[in-house]
């Protein structure tokens, strides 16, 4: 059984965790936005701008962590645009989100062409290198999977814990969740729904951009126009699949990434010789749709998701 053989290799699990990392960043980002009541369809474009700015910063000679920081700030800038238009002005979150995605994607393409007009093959940077945790990385299967990854992967998993704690164990998290469930109650506490929602969208967009930066700075070492390739939309499905909970969403991302790693490996088997490779590449997208269908019955959608809040209006 080829599938079993694949499942027992350490490289498979290492790949699954690696593939999951950018998805975890972006899914957490989207989750924060949606928990505060804002659907952020800018995610796809914000991942592109993160991938580009992070890579460009390093290409210009700055350090890798500076690149991550620049990517995050660029993402937050587009988040600010999204938040301004959707929160105080209450514009359609669908239209603004798609507009932000188009704007961010086009900005990255324009800037790339402007700074590198002549190149035919995309230039490379030296990406983040694996940083094995002494001792733990020696464990069978689990070691290479979880403890011999790049620092950005560790950061992704640490953020799952941080976001969970903030959401469920702090007054800030309570206010944020309330802004997405019952915004009037937030105002009754003397807090500003506008400020909380805008903050959530800006921070969430920063995380999405780091997810994009992971692609150029940890997974690959160059920037391509098509590199995000629908990952943002997949993350929106993952938020639903994870029932708007950080832990479950991260688990969903891992499960999803495992299937993705599996389809790549199945292409090399005798099965891959019979089935066209495009069928394997469809798997992630089909899985995302299936996940949405499966969860549709027991969705716990934030009650005020996509409902604009205008102070004093009922």
């Amino acid at each position: 059984m080829e599938i079993l053989d694949i499942l027992l290799t350490a490289s498979f699990w290492a790949a699954a965790v690696r593939i999951a990392s950018p998805l975890i960043f972006a899914t957490l980002g989207e989750l924060i936005c949606e928990r505060a009541g804002v659907l952020n369809l800018g995610i796809e474009g914000i991942m592109v701008i993160g991938a580009f700015t992070g890579w460009m910063t390093v290409y210009l000679g700055f350090g890798l962590w500076t690149g991550v920081l620049v990517a995050m700030l660029a993402g937050m800038l587009f988040g600010l645009l999204h938040a301004t238009l959707t929160v105080p002005f209450g514009l359609s979150q669908h239209v603004v989100g798609l507009g932000v995605t188009l704007l961010a994607t086009a900005t990255a393409a324009f800037a790339y062409r402007l700074s590198l007009p002549e190149v035919t093959s995309p230039p490379k940077i030296v990406p983040f290198q694996p940083l094995p945790v002494p001792g733990l990385s020696e464990l069978p299967l689990v070691g290479p999977a979880f403890f011999a990854q790049t620092p950005l992967t560790y950061l992704a998993f640490a953020l799952v814990v941080v976001v969970s704690v903030v959401l469920y164990r702090t007054p800030l998290g309570l206010a944020l969740r309330a802004a997405g469930e019952n915004p009037a109650s937030v105002e009754a506490q003397g807090l500003s729904v506008t400020a909380i929602r805008m903050g959530a969208v800006i921070v969430g967009s920063g995380l999405m951009a780091i997810g994009g930066a992971f692609l150029t700075m940890s997974a690959f070492s160059s920037f391509f126009f098509e590199m995000v390739n629908g990952r943002g939309w997949i993350c929106i499905a993952l938020v639903v699949f994870g029932a708007w909970r950080p832990g479950k969403a991260a688990l969903g991302a891992l499960l999803f990434a495992a299937f993705d790693a599996l389809q790549v490996r199945l292409q090399q088997t005798p099965m891959g010789a019979v089935v066209p490779y495009q069928v394997f590449l469809m798997v992630p997208y089909i899985l995302s749709i299936l996940a949405l269908v499966l969860m549709s019955r027991r969705a716990e959608v934030p009650a005020a998701l996509m409902v604009p809040f205008n102070k004093g209006e009922r």
Binding site: L85, F89, L91, V100, L103, A109, F110, R113
Partner: peptide, 16 residues
């Protein structure tokens, strides 16, 4: 790609 940026800008400014 200036065209794509302009169209996205037109979209966002017009809805506003």
């Amino acid at each position: 790609y200036i065209a794509d940026i302009l169209m996205a800008t037109a979209l966002l400014t017009m809805v506003l």
